[in-house]
């Protein structure tokens, strides 16, 4: 057996250095790298318990070239709030305080503190990298786990039977100035949203879809493709909500059948084998999408041409 050593030199322009501890193909790392390109050095990441508490590295090393503040699982939003308060008192208005949390830390255990911070319109950027389960503890369901998915607590014999919680609607209900979904497969869209977020004051929320090869039972070279398919099948639409009122779909998907997305991943094996269930999931996706399209139309007064093709029946 022979070893091949590759010396990896950090890219000068990258604030995320090699040597982090994520799995190959980890969507959450791609998301962070992209985000840091926008934030630059004047940001602090607040990281609650999650894969990311490991990814950045074990003490005394860490991969990010910005300050990182680790905090308890349910406290990302409030720790970021505390840091913001201190930095404001010190006159450091030039820096971004970014909560960087998993779906579990956002949709579930951290929802209370998140709601508090959102409702008070704290001047922080909250980013949830969504891998649709508790990955750090070994792939257990979260309220972000989608309909039909396998996890270790929703085994093949009893796959997830509830739809993914709609976090964006929850944030919209808080009337926060900015909330957006994003995907690592659409870096331009993600970066545009990040930039927009940095130019707004108050509570900003970005929900970034971040595939997890081990958790989704897929090869590590598929992360970007799977993320793209999630968007193109309307499973994970890209849109933004301003002031909780104005909905804008930022990418009009091709509207591929959900199977195209499911079949790339082992976690949907049970649904794929169950035509009735698959049809149910497809129907659910359509209804959600149509609802979103209506909100977009209501916000803008018209629909672009490409919207028509994505809807089953005329609205």
């Amino acid at each position: 057996m022979s070893w091949a050593w590759v010396e990896v030199k950090p890219n000068e322009n990258d604030l995320m250095h090699p040597g982090h501890l994520a799995c190959q193909g980890c969507g959450a790392t791609i998301a962070a790298r992209l985000a840091l390109k926008v934030f630059g050095k004047n940001a602090v990441f607040v990281i609650p318990a999650s894969c990311w508490s490991v990814i950045d590295g074990a003490w005394p090393q860490h991969a990010l070239q910005i300050p990182v503040f680790h905090t308890a699982f349910e406290t990302a939003a409030i720790a970021a709030t505390g840091i913001r308060a201190a930095l404001d008192m010190k006159g450091r208005h030039d820096v971004h305080v970014v909560a960087w949390a998993g779906d579990g830390g956002t949709f579930d255990i951290g929802l209370q503190a998140l709601s508090g911070a959102a409702e008070r319109n704290e001047n922080i950027i909250y980013i949830t990298y969504d891998n649709e389960a508790y990955m750090n503890t070994g792939i257990q369901r979260s309220s972000s786990t989608p309909l039909g998915a396998w996890t270790t607590t929703t085994p093949d014999e009893r796959p997830e039977d509830r739809p993914k919680k709609n976090m964006m609607e929850i944030l919209a209900a808080h009337r926060v100035p900015y909330a957006a979904t994003a995907s690592i497969a659409y870096p331009d869209d993600f970066i545009r949203k990040l930039k927009k977020a940095t130019q707004i004051k108050g509570f900003r929320f970005i929900h970034v879809f971040s595939p997890c090869p081990p958790g989704w039972k897929m090869a590590s070279n598929l992360s970007v493709r799977v993320a793209r398919m999630a968007v193109e099948t309307k499973v994970f639409p890209l849109y933004e909500i301003e002031d909780g009122e104005v909905y804008t779909i930022t990418h009009w998907p091709r509207g591929l059948p959900v199977e195209e997305y499911f079949k790339l991943q082992g976690r949907f094996k049970p649904v794929l084998k169950d035509p009735e269930r698959l049809a149910y999931v497809q129907r659910y996706i359509e209804t959600q999408w149509e609802r979103l399209v209506r909100l977009h139309e209501a916000s803008h007064g018209y629909l672009p041409e490409e919207a028509r093709a994505t809807i089953r029946s005329a609205i």
């Binding site: 602090v44 406290t75 008070r120």
Partner: peptide, 20 residues
């Protein structure tokens, strides 16, 4: 900071304390 729980109250001040 008028938080929504004591858990958040203490979390906020731990963070602000470490932010100086």
């Amino acid at each position: 900071i008028t938080v929504e729980s004591e858990h958040s109250a203490i979390s906020a001040v731990i963070a602000s304390s470490l932010a100086g």
